[in-house]
Design a protein around this nucleic acid. Structure first.
Lengths: 183, 183, 183, 183
DNA sequence: GATGAATGAGGCTTCATTCAT
DNA sequence: AATGAATGAAGCCTCATTCAT
């Protein structure tokens, strides 16, 4: 996975994958049909933790919807900036067009579930009066857009201009939930 | 450029590039040192129109700031969804880590300028009272985040769930400028 | 053996040999030094039945020489067309130049003995007046040539033009023994 | 061709083919799709001379049928023993089952034409009273069987027992045409 | 004795790069 | 300046062989 993240699919050599994995080149072929299968399975298994993150995400319905989303976003951003989860997302963006199955799988397992969760949270926020903009429910993508931008920013531009992703997301939530509260 | 967009840097063959360009393979080497130089120059020249877009962007100071931004965003989204400008952005995201120079160039020529423009527009909006959230000026990224998401969405997930980018951006502007107006 | 016949020496995989034999791949190396040794031993043991056929061939000295040869040829052709004995012969022809030891062994165990037997039978036929062409004793290969041709024909051209090997051989014997008799 | 003859298809290395041809390995792929295509085309082109031999074969209808066949056989045997035409035949026997197209092509271009020629010659011989055994017309294979055997013999057993192919064929013709004449 | 996972040498094939024309 | 045939390094993949269990 590290090799694929660092070089992309085509430029990754199985020699390097093997030696980093501490096995011989041929051993890879005992487990994966070819380089494509290896890549797809790695991405697939890398996506699972993302799913788990989401599944474990919106449990605390006790607090406000904003608390819930903010807590989730904080976890998400933390995960994405400290682990290489973010690079996996970037990798999917990069190789998706050439591996439609991966993009499909990612959509099915992560995106659609995540969006459904966001949509439910937004609806709840609207019902409780926390969110004024009713149309937001139609575009839950807006909710996580800054988090996604942050992921891409970190891997491309952080050396030019560091970005405080969590603070940015807080400001973004201010737009959505109106008055900012102490955090 | 079409070849690089469709396959990424490593998987693109100069054979295909040459035949699509209608020249012999060797001719490429009369103009570019090697494949990397070709790629970097192509991206570089592809970025120029984006810069021009930005430069031509904030002229009409006559209307409201929202009008200005909305007009700009409409042009941007139109550009990005109907031309392959969006794919170039995706390509930069994909190959950026392996071509830091490209990422640098893109940051310098597009991102920093675009952000500066956004920041100026936001400040103007705040000064005029159109924008309530003063902190938005610190994170102009939030302003274009949905447009970026739309770009990625189109190339990865549009077949699963089409996204009305312009409408999404309008909703997003509602969040920023408060009450929605007739558009 | 089936694998070697179907694919030839080089293209045969020990994986397939092992799984067809119902043992693990490593087990092969408990019995044979390497792939070559396996091949040579298999051919060697496959040749033995051919030798036995020959040994059991010319017992019935009661009848005419033609009866003897015809009986033998009938058995031979039957063997060769219904079992894969013929394919072994083809395999030897195919791999002989790269496995001179096999060709030598085959010559020693089958060809030379067979020719000697043929030569003896021909001499007997000449002595008894059944065979007119005395020079045939110098070229016993002529006697079995049609049978060999039939072997090759079956594996290469039978789908284009089926060949009645036994009938062909009978006609061949007519040439040698003169007038044809009821069969 | 020499490499394929010496080693068979599977064991032949394109490295060796290339260096013997005096080109680089990659050059092969400018002319042939892959190793199989190379092999098939080589065999195909090697078969053409055999066809030409046959076409040029039975011209002198002036003499007896035996003269015609004997002249043809002499040419054939000479070709086969002094050039590597014989090895090509052996190669077809060896690889035919794995390259059915080659076997088909060989049957179509050489075998069927050759047999037709033989059959015509035999019929002529019967009509002229030179050949007594009318049934021979049904099995023209018998006519060339010794020549084929000679081909195989030369490449496998000549070091054990040299074979005078031409003399053998003469004896064979004696069987067919009856009384032997001065040659 | 049997296993089968692991090895790594070796072969096929691709493709960026060169260069004689 | 343009060509495109030729090159050969490099990478994917196979499979004979080994060896710890």
């Amino acid at each position: 996975m590290d090799e694929f993240i660092a070089r992309g699919f085509a430029a990754t050599r199985l020699d390097d994958v093997a030696s980093r994995a501490g096995v011989a080149k041929g051993t890879i072929y005992l487990h994966f049909k070819d380089k494509e299968a290896l890549f797809e399975e790695l991405i697939r298994t890398a996506i699972v933790p993302l799913v788990n993150r989401l599944a474990a995400g919106p449990p605390s319905v006790g607090g406000s919807v904003r608390d819930m989303i903010e807590g989730f976003a904080r976890t998400f951003i933390h995960e994405v900036t400290t682990t290489r989860r973010g690079d996996i997302v970037r990798l999917i963006v990069a190789e998706g067009p050439r591996f439609p199955e991966i993009a499909d799988f990612y959509y099915r397992e992560v995106v659609s579930k995540g969006l459904a969760g966001m949509r439910a949270a937004i609806s709840l926020g609207i019902a409780r009066g926390e969110i004024q903009h009713k149309e937001l429910a139609q575009f839950p993508q807006i909710l996580i857009a800054p988090a996604m931008i942050a992921v891409i920013w970190q891997s491309l531009f952080s050396k030019h201009a560091p970005l405080d992703a969590i603070e940015m997301f807080r400001v973004h939530l201010d737009l959505i939930f109106g008055e900012r509260r102490t955090t």
